[in-house]
Every structure is written in structure tokens, then in C-alpha cells.
Design a protein around this nucleic acid. Sequence first.
DNA 1: CTCATTTTGTGACGATAGTCAATTTAAGTT
DNA 2: AACTTAAATTGACTATCGTCACAAAATGAG
Lengths: 189, 189
Amino acid sequence: MNAALRNTLNEFEKIPDDDWEFFQSILTTSTIKKGDFLLREGQICKGVYFVILGSARAYLSIDGREVNTSFYFEESFISDFESLTNDLPSKKSIQVMENTNVIFIPKIKLLALYEESTSFQTLGRKILEQVVILEQQYSSLFTIFLPKERYEHVLENHPNLIQRVPLQFLASYLGVARETLSRIRKRVT
Amino acid sequence: MNAALRNTLNEFEKIPDDDWEFFQSILTTSTIKKGDFLLREGQICKGVYFVILGSARAYLSIDGREVNTSFYFEESFISDFESLTNDLPSKKSIQVMENTNVIFIPKIKLLALYEESTSFQTLGRKILEQVVILEQQYSSLFTIFLPKERYEHVLENHPNLIQRVPLQFLASYLGVARETLSRIRKRVT
DNA sequence: CTCATTTTGTGACGATAGTCAATTTAAGTT
DNA sequence: AACTTAAATTGACTATCGTCACAAAATGAG
């Protein structure tokens, strides 16, 4: 059941068997129904989710309008770091886009695990390094590309996004109006 | 001489004295002349710089045009994570904007230190967590704000940037043409 | 201080994306 | 399958930004 998570973690850092045993004991698995929330604006994020099957989105509510900031699919980690690491009320909501199976990793337990296991500490650092890289690539979308080019670049590099995310959510993620994205898509395809 | 660095690190995690002693031994301090480079496109980034005094910018060269992706001032860490963590040729160049004093922390030594010291490992993780948060705030500039609002938001939250970065560099960082930024600044001020 | 170079500011124009409104298409429910 | 609701598309119009060309201001070197 947790095999997908172990495989993903092993790509970053090999986990010794006994570390893994303890790690498993802090995990809880659950199924979230389409439209339900992993985190709501104002709540304090208490841990990290791992997506076994399904998808989710993170968004900001800006005077009534929803601005999508991230999308998550199988084998990815979901959290709001701003809330999680500094215990601040989240500015974002995280909502599941379809029925989704997740593993929950509580922050308190994870921090304790870091203290005891060097390999997990290393793991946490390596995952964060990749998150930083992805975030930088995302922001450069806006500074180096025009809207149409942003779409093409995402189509090329993250086809999941284009295939599995409804246009209404994708638009704000790409920084364009829904109508504009619709027109871009017609021209490109 | 390294006091500024120690102070900064202590805000993340207290460093035991003996850990600090060893850490100091891997550091080298240098002065970089205005316009010189800490990293050039195509090179592999070999470590992290800490700014004691001065400033720097990171930029991408996109068909002749320079797109600035980050600015660095006193007490901040400079690196290209995409190159550093995965040993890839850097897409970015990092150039000093004025005569700048930096401390260099070599990656190889730092990784060795991580293996031996839990507090440094934790430190590395905590710094990365804050980097992720900053990067996410940067990308949301583009999705939630119009150009004029981006300028005002940066003016409010990172006044250093507005005061110390030439307009020609700021423009691409904010995703607008130089002329547009010039006009925004006239209206806002 | 003067000259040369770089940086910033301005004006005019065209291209592009945003907005509003209406329609078509798709999805979900009973 | 029929109905309802939501999502995507399309058209018309406007606002905004980018581009090009040039002028003014600031910076730096001799």
C-alpha cells in the first residue's frame, strides 16, 4: 500500500529497512472525495500529503477570484510550506480535483524522525532542493515567455497539466484569462 | 569576519561551537569587483556564496535579452540550485552589481559536513524551506497582480530591490518592458 | 570640467490580452 | 434520455502593454 511512497523516496535517498518500519507507523492513508479539501485558507498546515492516486490543486482566493498556484498528481507531495514550516494560517486552499488516495505524514512525527534518522533528514533536504528548482522554473515561465509560449512550454514539459487540469484552473496558473487560454489552445492545437 | 554569517545561521538553528569551528575551516572569503561573475552560464555551480557586503543578480540570457531572476544583498545566500544540486551546466549567470564581499561555501565540504553534523543538516533544510516560500511568493506576483501592483508590492515588501536595483534589471524581474516600468514608477511615486 | 557612454524617460503607434455578454458544448443528475 | 448545471468557446470592444525612435538625465573616464 505504501510501496508507491517508498519507491518515490528511494529515488532521492535509500531508506534503511528499520527506518522505513518506523516511518510507516506514522503514516495514515485515506480517500478524499472529489471537491473536498486537504487544507483550507486560514488553517495551519499540519503535515505533508503524498498522492497515491488522483489529483489536487492549490489556490489563492483574491477578492472572489481563485488563482491556482500548483497542481499535484500521482507520486507528488502536497503541502503549503509557508503555513507548514512557520505555523502560519494558510493563504492557500488545497482541494482534490477527483477522488484521491493520499498518505498523510504529520509534521510533528516527521520532525521527530529527522532527529533520529540521518537518512530521513537528508531525504527532506533533497526533496526541498527539487521543489526549489521546480518553483524557479515556474516563475521563469512568466518572465521569459509570452502567454502562448507558456502554454506550449507546459504542454511540452508537463503534459499531465494540460491533459488533466480543466481549462478554468489552468488559466490563472498560466497568468491569463480563461477566454485567452481557450483561444491559445485553439491556435496551437 | 564570519560573524555576519554565523548570526544569519543562528536565526535558523543554533550551531554548537565545535561544529562552527570546523565549518569556518571550509570557508573562503573574497572580494569580487563590480561586473565580475560568481557563476557563468554553462558552468557547474560548485557551492554557495554568502553576501557580507554588496549585491548581485542572477539572470538568464534569452536570445540576446537578459532576464533577471533574482537579486541578492547583505546576509543572503547565492547559488543556482538547478546546477548545484544536480551538477548540471547552469542556465543562469550570476553577476555582482557592485564591489562585493562574499564567503564561499564549497558544496563538497558542505555535503561532508551534513554527514557529520545533525545541526548543519537541519540548517540546510530550514534554509531551503524559506527559499521555497520566497520563490512561491515571487511566482504569485505574476498570477495575482497587474504590473503596477507588482511594483507596489515589491516596493512595500522588498524596498531594497527598488532602491538598489537599476530599473533596467528590475523590469525583466517584474515581467515588464523597461519603458513600462519607467512609466509605472512615474505614476506611483 | 568636459566629453562619451550608459541609463532613464517620453511620445506615437500597433499588437495583444482582458472584459463583458452571449452561445455552444460538455458533464452530471434524476 | 431529458433536464439542469457547469465549462468552454466565440465575438465585439476596450484597456494595457510592448516596440520603435528619440530626447533627457545621469554616470564615469580622462
